[in-house]
Design a binder for these strands. Structure first.
Lengths: 109, 109
DNA sequence: TATACATATGTACATATATACATATGTATA
DNA sequence: TATACATATGTATATATGTACATATGTATA
């Protein structure tokens, strides 16, 4: 990835994304930077689950789950399907699985 | 990814990582969840750079850059090479590029 | 309509964290 | 050794953020 360079030789970086893009990307990764949201995403990896099922499964309050689901929804990582008074949540994006997988690859060296 | 399921049918999730793993993964993504670190990583994508070069390039204080480089180092995302009194930083891991790329793919829909 | 229930949301607060500032450490050169 | 310079680090502080608690919204059923 990074090319070796003699200390005296200075080359400017040839790809620097604008601040806006960097910010957007940071905001995106920030969503994955919380254990509750990670656990929710893993729970939804192969299942469509109700809010209260998530709360029970993960030992979280209904409120906390709902708040985190909102963040995940806003970032298009999960989607909702209404079922009467219940809400069924599932993953929204095909990338989510790959993103989680790559993270796991990294931390397992 | 997520299998359709009738509301009455309840299946337990078949893969739930332990809390420790979820925490480790969240901590890992947290590193990407900051605009300064993202900008540093992009700057290092094709270049080996000195701390002061990064500071100039990104309009950050030397201290701020150094603090963030420490976090990136501890998470094995960048590595250092000493050159006298200078330090040359570069990406440490082949995954970094792919992780950034996937993030970009997601936010660009 | 009244009640029960599932989910969403407003708010307060405790905790985490990025940066500025000051300073320490380490290296090269006079 | 003294000085200049690059980088690292300790600390304080302002800001961001996750969760608890209370409550609102919306739906099904009696």
């Amino acid at each position: 990835m990074s090319v070796f360079r003699a200390p005296e030789t200075k080359t400017a970086p040839n790809y620097l994304p604008g601040t806006d893009l960097a910010l957007e990307l940071a905001e995106f990764y920030k969503v994955f930077g919380d254990i509750s949201r990670i656990r929710i995403l893993f729970a939804l990896l192969d299942n469509e689950l109700y809010v209260n099922e998530l709360a029970d499964l993960l030992n979280m309050s209904q409120s906390a789950v709902s708040h985190q689901l909102r963040i995940l929804r806003q970032n298009k990582l999960v989607k909702v399907r209404k079922d009467g008074k219940n809400s069924l949540y599932s993953l929204d994006d095909e990338h989510v699985y790959r993103i989680l997988t790559h993270g796991l690859e990294h931390i397992s060296h």
